[in-house]
Design a protein around this nucleic acid. Structure first.
Lengths: 108, 108
DNA sequence: GCCAAAGTACGATCGCTGTCAAACTTCGAC
DNA sequence: GTCGAAGTTTGACAGCGATCGTACTTTGGC
């Protein structure tokens, strides 16, 4: 058991910052990740997304999303699973994710 | 009558792009402009906002907001008035401005 | 006509961030 | 134990965009 076995830090819902959430969502790749998560309705591993970037760049994007409070991450084997914190986000920023995921998920 | 007398180009509501709108709203200064416009309920001249930037920078921000479709601009004397295109935005991106202006307008 | 007020246009700068490749770590399967 | 799959870490790089000062334009008031 090493660093990979521990779950990374997640912000509390109450201390989520709108500015940080917006900066996370303004990137097309990250917004696509959120949209895909929302559409799938299930948790997905990092490799389970259709995004046009390298693995290291993907890692970066997932970190930004997690630090903003948008997703929760946990390990299952070697896979890092990603879960959309939908209900929590709706609680703090009602209507925001609705407004963004309502849009047709454009190809990026 | 010169360049100042003509109204600058405004995008149609139908051709407003979510990505562009998000990029416009992610900047704290611009988001503050939108929030102040929404709160005031009236049109305001460029000089009528509480924003911590120079005049030339302010011009840039207003241009970005206009090109994204968020505000409408027209001249009254030497003043350039700014009007929030609230209803039109609500039509294309329902809930978006609601979610953003609901937040307490933080000091920037 | 002259001047001040309100913005605009133009460069220049500077920091941030998205990107990748390469090397590394961890875990599961065999 | 070896190997491959899945991610991470690190360092480097490139491009964008927010910012400012300065010079300029337009308009209205006197």
């Amino acid at each position: 058991m090493g660093a990979m076995g521990r779950t990374p830090p997640h912000p509390e819902v109450s201390q989520c910052d709108l500015q940080q959430v917006l900066e996370a969502l303004v990137d097309p790749v990250r917004r696509s990740i959120v949209t895909q998560l929302d559409a799938s309705g299930t948790d997905l591993p990092c490799g389970g997304f259709d995004i046009p970037v390298s693995k290291s760049t993907a890692t970066h994007h997932f970190n930004v999303l997690r630090e903003a409070g948008l997703i929760r991450q946990y390990y299952v084997g070697t896979s890092r699973m990603n879960s959309l914190r939908r209900a929590e986000m709706d609680e703090v920023f009602p209507g925001l994710l609705d407004a963004l995921t309502r849009q047709p998920a454009k190809k990026i």
